[in-house]
Design a protein around this nucleic acid. Structure first.
Length: 236
DNA sequence: GCGACAG
DNA sequence: ATCTTGTCGC
């Protein structure tokens, strides 16, 4: 069981502190082709009931060759930070790290439900998560945070670069013919081309790639049906 | 100054 | 994100 260096604490952080931390951490993010084989990929997500602080976080690991689920872990935790555009990582990563600790495998690359460097300070949840996990990570989001792009061709696989202040920060990628694109951006220890290839490799029957969809299903099941080991009140 | 704004 | 049925379109 590996241990991960604590780059910084997650508690008692104000939004202003979080922004300052991002400015401090951004220089550590490395965008370059992955070294070493990529055989497994993890998808992660969190779910929660509106107005409640309890969050359900989960990670699903799939074999990149067969897309078969080979591992998964979920946790019931508490959110200590609100959702603030640009500061998503401070709300989701703490609980995701708890789920990560319960995995029995070490995913080679991690796909996040959000942005990587396609972020105002170039350190979205996928980049921030990559610094903690110290392995290739990238983001695959359903909508844009920052950046502009030209509509990619309607065929699956076509994509166009997303630009933010002269920087190419990601790509609008079509995962299905005639369906809205997803927004892919490098997180850490990976490059845009590889992130795009991995997203296409995880193709299933839907617009969103399988890792993200399965993680989403896992946390929603956890939220609605409860953890099998957690006592829930039964109706009389 | 006025909007935009991952999940 | 979450709350929700039907409905328009390929």
């Amino acid at each position: 069981m590996a241990s991960y260096e604590l780059l910084h604490p997650w508690t008692d952080i104000s939004p202003a502190d979080a922004v300052a931390l991002q400015q401090q951490l951004r220089s550590q993010v490395r965008i370059l082709p992955p070294t070493g084989p990529l055989r497994t990929i993890a998808g992660c997500d969190i779910s929660f009931n509106k107005f409640e602080e309890t969050v359900y976080a989960g990670i699903v690991v799939l074999d990149l060759e067969t897309l078969e689920t080979i591992d998964e872990a979920g946790v019931v935790s508490t959110a200590t930070f609100p959702y603030v555009p640009g500061l998503l990582s401070f709300r989701e990563i703490p609980s995701l790290l708890e789920a990560w600790a319960k995995l029995t495998t070490e995913p080679d690359v991690v796909m996040f439900d959000g942005q990587g460097i396609a972020h105002p300070r170039r350190i979205g949840i996928a980049s921030h998560g990559g610094l903690f996990l110290n392995r290739p990570t990238f983001g695959c989001a359903k909508s844009v945070l920052v950046g502009k792009y030209n509509e990619p061709a309607p065929e699956r696989g076509s994509w166009s670069p997303m630009t933010h202040y002269r920087d190419v920060v990601g790509a609008a990628l079509r995962t299905k013919n005639r369906v809205n694109p997803v927004y892919v951006s490098p997180g850490h220890l990976i490059d845009l081309e590889t992130a795009i290839a991995l997203t296409l490799r995880c193709d299933g029957k839907y617009r969103l790639p399988e890792p993200t969809r399965r993680a989403h299903n896992l946390v929603n099941t956890l939220r609605r049906n409860g953890s099998p080991y957690q006592q829930t009140t039964q109706p009389s």
